Simulated assay, not measured.
Amino acid sequence: MDKESIPQEITTLVGREVYSNNGVFVGEVEDLRLDLDRHEITGLALYQLNTELFDAETQSARGVIVPYRWVQAVGDVIIINDVVERLHQPETEEDEEEVAA
């Protein structure tokens, strides 16, 4: 029986580091958000956040919840889409000019 077909407890996700698909550290899993009616994970509650990715308001909070649909792979670490990185990319000069116009 291969490893993927063996049922694992969801608590094995707690404590795993989360990285974007570009290799940037996002945070660490502290807890899970579950939909008990559908028997599925809907989100990962992260703490120990990468301060470069999140604004000051988020940093003063206990953590963030990342939608589980962002998860691309689960292994020794968890890989998620780079959505968080894209949310905080600096605006280009063209964007700034358009806003000022």
Rank of each mutant, 00 (worst) to 15 (best):
M1N: 09
M1T: 11
M1F: 08
M1D: 12
D2A: 14
D2H: 14
D2L: 14
K3Q: 05
K3T: 07
K3P: 04
K3E: 05
E4L: 10
S5W: 15
S5E: 15
S5C: 13
S5Q: 12
S5H: 14
P7R: 04
Q8I: 15
E9H: 09
I10Y: 13
I10C: 10
T11F: 11
T11A: 12
T11S: 13
T12V: 11
L13W: 00
L13K: 02
V14Q: 01
V14Y: 00
V14S: 01
V14W: 00
G15D: 03
G15L: 03
G15E: 04
R16V: 09
V18N: 00
Y19H: 10
Y19S: 05
N21D: 06
N21G: 04
G23I: 07
G23M: 05
F25M: 07
G27C: 06
G27K: 00
G27N: 02
E28H: 03
E28K: 07
E28C: 07
E28G: 06
V29Q: 02
V29T: 01
V29C: 02
V29R: 00
E30R: 06
E30F: 04
D31Q: 05
D31G: 07
D31W: 06
D31R: 04
L32A: 09
L32W: 08
L34C: 09
D35V: 04
D35F: 03
L36E: 09
L36S: 10
R38F: 15
I41P: 03
I41Q: 04
I41R: 03
I41G: 07
T42V: 13
L44C: 10
A45V: 11
L46K: 00
L46G: 00
L46P: 00
Y47Q: 06
Y47V: 08
Q48M: 09
Q48T: 08
L49D: 01
L49W: 03
N50E: 03
E52L: 03
E52K: 01
E52A: 03
L53W: 02
F54P: 01
F54Y: 02
F54I: 00
D55C: 15
A56K: 10
A56M: 08
E57K: 13
E57P: 02
E57G: 11
T58H: 00
T58V: 02
Q59H: 05
S60Q: 10
A61T: 11
G63K: 03
G63I: 06
V64Y: 15
V64I: 14
I65N: 05
P67G: 02
P67I: 03
Y68R: 13
Y68A: 12
R69M: 15
R69Q: 13
R69T: 13
R69A: 14
V71G: 01
V71T: 01
V71E: 00
V71N: 01
Q72P: 05
Q72D: 12
A73Y: 10
A73F: 11
D76G: 12
D76E: 11
V77E: 02
I78L: 01
I78Q: 00
I79M: 04
D82F: 05
V83R: 11
V83H: 14
V83A: 12
V83P: 08
V83K: 12
V84A: 14
V84F: 15
V84N: 11
E85N: 09
H88V: 14
H88N: 09
P90N: 08
E91P: 04
E91D: 09
E93F: 10
E94K: 02
D95L: 13
E96F: 01
E96C: 08
E98I: 13
E98A: 15
A100E: 05
A100Q: 06
A101G: 14
